[in-house]
């Protein structure tokens, strides 16, 4: 068994190179998705019919399409030659995650009793003040587990982007396997790397959650 895994140092540099790309795409993609998601969430709770419909259609369409098809469609059909591979990959992941993000934000905000908004308004706060000072701080705490969930999900989804030749962690492993046929070893290395990164992220999110939940134990 020890002998079996001794090979892993040989492949580690290229696998870590793949991990780097995975992390860049996931982190930048999620950051973009959060911005897009906030915008979409604002649309869907705005009370303005047209904006609500736009957000609704966007979310339905994006959530209804598998990421693989979204990636192939965007990269080969829409983006074509206008962008490099890396920005294309980031945008595709951001589009996919933004729909889920918007729903997470909306759910968080709507979980706070509407009575609180009414109370704030009756005390003379404007709608935005009530949102900013009363609702959002509470909503954010509720959202953290779901946001972390989405982040982990998107991090693993980067593997699907190998369909458009993004050389991330899974693709790196696949390309090495294509040459030496050691499928079991290389996939297990890749799986362990994903596992370590995601375990770290989970730990981090637990810490943040605990810091913010000063009112609960």
């Amino acid at each position: 068994m020890l002998d079996y895994f001794s090979d892993c140092w040989k492949y580690l540099p290229s696998l870590l190179g793949g991990l780097k790309l995975t992390l860049i795409i996931a982190v930048v993609g999620i950051a973009l998705a959060i911005v897009l998601g906030i915008l979409l969430c604002a649309f869907s709770i705005s009370g303005i019919f047209v904006l609500e419909k736009i957000a609704g259609i966007y979310i339905t369409v994006v959530r209804g399409i598998p990421l693989m098809i979204l990636a192939l469609f965007m990269y080969f059909g829409v983006i074509k030659n206008s962008l490099d591979l890396l920005p294309s990959a980031i945008i595709i992941l951001a589009i996919n995650a933004s729909a889920y993000m918007a729903e997470i934000f909306r759910a968080g905000i709507q979980a706070i009793d509407f009575g609180q908004t009414e109370a704030a308004r009756s005390l003379g706060l404007s709608y935005f003040q009530a949102m900013y000072k009363i609702i959002l701080p509470q909503a954010f705490k509720i959202m953290i587990p779901s946001l972390m969930n989405q982040f982990i999900s998107s991090l693993k989804d980067t593997a699907i982007l190998s369909a458009i030749s993004v050389n991330e962690l899974t693709m790196t492993a696949k390309v090495i396997i294509a040459r030496n046929y050691n499928a079991f070893e290389l996939y297990s290395y890749a799986a362990i790397i994903y596992l370590i990164v995601i375990a770290l992220l989970t730990y981090l999110s637990k810490r943040v959650e605990r810091k913010l939940s000063y009112d609960k134990r």
Binding site: Y75, F76, K80, N81, S162, A163, I164, S165, N167, M171
Partner: peptide, 19 residues
């Protein structure tokens, strides 16, 4: 080098000018 999982994508990439 970019690696695609199938012939169709590989050919599309060259037809599109992405490779």
């Amino acid at each position: 080098v970019t690696v695609y999982p199938d012939s169709a994508s590989m050919m599309l990439a060259v037809a599109n000018g992405q490779a």
